[in-house]
């Protein structure tokens, strides 16, 4: 071995020292903490209010934690709160939303992923024109299509049913999801597709056995987008369904805006949190999946 030691060093050496309370750090973390508090505070107020009884709320201490914890408002919001004539709480709306969201998400993602796959790998005549038209669809305001769709649904006998709303959500998810999937599949190495063709796999076999297993990250993104979008939808829900089939968002609105009796703030807060719980849990669950998906997808060929 060559002797590589030399005389003791003088002057700056090794990692540069950093002060924990430099002006830069104070500014950076100060801003972050302030913004975090700004967003967290309403959630906190909602949560503590939902656990208080009405007499305690009338005292007006909005920020103080409940003196006497009660879950009655939650129970009431779920199963007893009145919307107009019926008093079933949010539960009916919740199950309606589940029946709307699950088929819409699955259908729209399956169709859009096949669309994106065909557009990126099997260039057919007019593929680019088709894609342009589809993307253009994403820029048309919903309001323009609201009434024509009412007529179309009425003509095919789906107006007011859950099926009709599922159809509308599936169609409206198409442009953005197709774009998402097309761009993802285009980014996968083309040689994989070629190799699969040499191996004798056809359109569906390549899709199911080569492309889909590599696409966990983009499917996760699509699920997040669709679940939150469809669950939080109010406009389509109120326009295309009948009162029996109202989704949870519409029920929530009806409970909170009911004009009869006393405003029950604790029940309203509990109902709002209940409605937001599904998108919230989707973020928590799929956030981890998302990271894992990216790690698995990072290995290319």
């Amino acid at each position: 071995m060559i002797d590589t030691t030399s005389a003791p060093l003088t002057g700056p050496q090794g990692p540069k020292p950093r002060k924990p309370f430099s002006r830069r750090n104070i500014f950076l973390y100060g801003t972050l903490i302030t913004i975090a508090l700004f967003y967290a505070l309403p959630l906190y107020v909602m949560f503590v209010t939902s656990l208080k009884g009405m007499p305690e709320i009338r005292l007006g201490n909005v920020f103080s934690p409940p003196l006497e914890v009660t879950f009655q408002p939650w129970v009431k919001a779920w199963s007893e709160a009145c919307t107009g004539l019926t008093c079933n709480g949010l539960s009916t709306g919740f199950w309606n939303s589940v029946q709307i969201t699950i088929p819409s998400v699955i259908l729209s993602i399956i169709i859009a992923s096949v669309n994106g796959y065909a557009l990126s790998n099997w260039k057919f005549k007019g593929a680019d024109a088709f894609f342009t038209i589809l993307i253009f669809g994403a820029f048309i305001p919903y309001q323009v299509m609201l009434y024509p769709i009412v007529i179309m649904l009425r003509e095919v006998g789906l107006y007011g049913s859950l099926g009709g709303l599922v159809l509308v959500h599936t169609v409206f998810g198409m442009p953005i999801l197709t774009l998402l999937f097309r761009n993802y599949f285009t980014s996968l190495p083309e040689e994989l597709f070629k190799a699969a063709r040499v191996d004798g796999a056809g359109f569906w076999a390549i899709y199911a056995k080569v492309m889909v297993p590599m696409s966990l990250p983009i499917f996760t993104v699509a699920v997040i987008l669709q679940v939150t979008g469809i669950w939080n939808d109010f406009l389509f829900g109120v326009v295309y369904t009948s009162p029996d089939n109202y989704p949870m968002t519409v029920s929530l609105n009806n409970i909170v805006n009911s004009t009869q009796g006393v405003k029950e703030y604790n029940v309203n807060m509990a109902a709002t949190i209940l409605t937001g719980l599904v998108p919230l849990s989707i973020y928590f669950v799929s956030g981890r999946l998302f990271v894992r998906g990216i790690a698995a997808g990072a290995v290319k060929g």
Partner: peptide
Amino acid sequence: IGMVFQSYALYPQM
């Protein structure tokens, strides 16, 4: 024919 590609093009999930 059998083909061998520059980027190997192995199916990563298999």
